[in-house]
Deep mutational scan, measured.
Amino acid sequence: HHGSGALAALHADGPHAGLPVTRSDARVLIFNDWEERKRSEPWLRLDMSDKAIFRRYPHLR
């Protein structure tokens, strides 16, 4: 199991509170979210491209 239990660094406060600090933090969040959702949506594709990251977390651009 590759990303399970990996912890992402999140901004503690300010405008980005609760959001990932780096792209690799964002990838951890996206992976964990996908892993949760694919139980009920097995067709869901995992997209951890930069484009997917920016779409979801525009502050990382």
Results as ranks from 00 to 15, higher is better:
Glu41Val: 07
Lys38Thr: 10
Trp43Thr: 10
Trp34Asn: 01
His2Ile: 14
Ile53Tyr: 01
Ala9Ile: 14
Pro42Gly: 05
Val21Ala: 08
Ala8Pro: 14
Arg37Cys: 00
Asn32Leu: 14
Ser40Gln: 09
Gly3Trp: 12
Met48His: 08
Thr22His: 08
His2Asn: 07
Trp43His: 09
Val21Ile: 14
Pro42Glu: 03
Asp47Trp: 02
Leu44Ala: 07
Ile53Glu: 00
Leu29Pro: 00
Glu36Val: 11
Trp43Val: 04
Ala9Asp: 11
Ser49Gly: 05
Val21Lys: 14
Asn32Thr: 11
Gly18Cys: 07
His16Lys: 06
Ala9Tyr: 12
Gly5Asp: 09
Leu29Arg: 03
Arg55Thr: 14
Gly18Tyr: 05
Ser4Phe: 10
Pro58Gln: 01
Arg23Ile: 15
Pro42Leu: 03
His1Tyr: 14
Arg45Leu: 05
Ala26Asn: 00
Arg56Phe: 05
Ser40Arg: 13
Leu29Lys: 03
Ala8Arg: 03
Met48Thr: 11
His1Asn: 11
His11Cys: 05
Asp25Leu: 02
Leu60Trp: 01
Asp25Lys: 11
Asn32Ala: 10
Leu44Asn: 03
Ala8Cys: 09
Ala12Lys: 14
Ile53Thr: 01
Pro20Val: 01
Ser40Lys: 09
Leu10Phe: 06
Arg37Glu: 03
Gly3Lys: 10
Glu41Asn: 09
Gly3Thr: 13
Lys51Arg: 11
Arg55Asn: 15
Ala26Gln: 00
Pro58Trp: 03
Asp25Arg: 01
Arg39Val: 10
Ala6Ile: 15
Trp34Gln: 00
Ser49Asn: 02
Trp34Leu: 00
Glu41Gln: 08
Phe31Val: 04
Leu44Gln: 09
Thr22Asp: 05
Asn32Gly: 07
Gly5Ser: 11
Gly18Ala: 05
His1Glu: 09
Ala17Arg: 14
Ser4Glu: 13
Arg37Trp: 02
Pro58Asn: 03
Ala8Ser: 05
Thr22Val: 05
Asp25Ala: 06
Ala17Met: 13
Phe54His: 12
Asp47Gln: 03
Lys38Arg: 13
His59Ile: 00
His59Cys: 00
Ala17Thr: 07
Thr22Leu: 03
Pro20Leu: 05
Glu35Asn: 11
Asp33Gly: 04
Glu36Asn: 08
Leu7Ile: 15
Ala52Asp: 04
Glu35Asp: 12
Phe54Thr: 08
Asp50Gly: 02
Gly5Phe: 11
His2Phe: 14
Arg23Val: 15
Pro42Ala: 04
Leu10Glu: 04
Arg27Ile: 06
Ser24Phe: 14
Ala12Leu: 13
Arg55Gln: 13
Ser4Trp: 13
Arg23Gly: 06
Gly14Ile: 04
Ala6Asp: 10
Ala17Tyr: 10
Arg45Tyr: 08
Leu29Ala: 05
Glu41Gly: 03
Val28Ile: 13
Thr22Glu: 03
His59Ser: 02
Pro20Met: 02
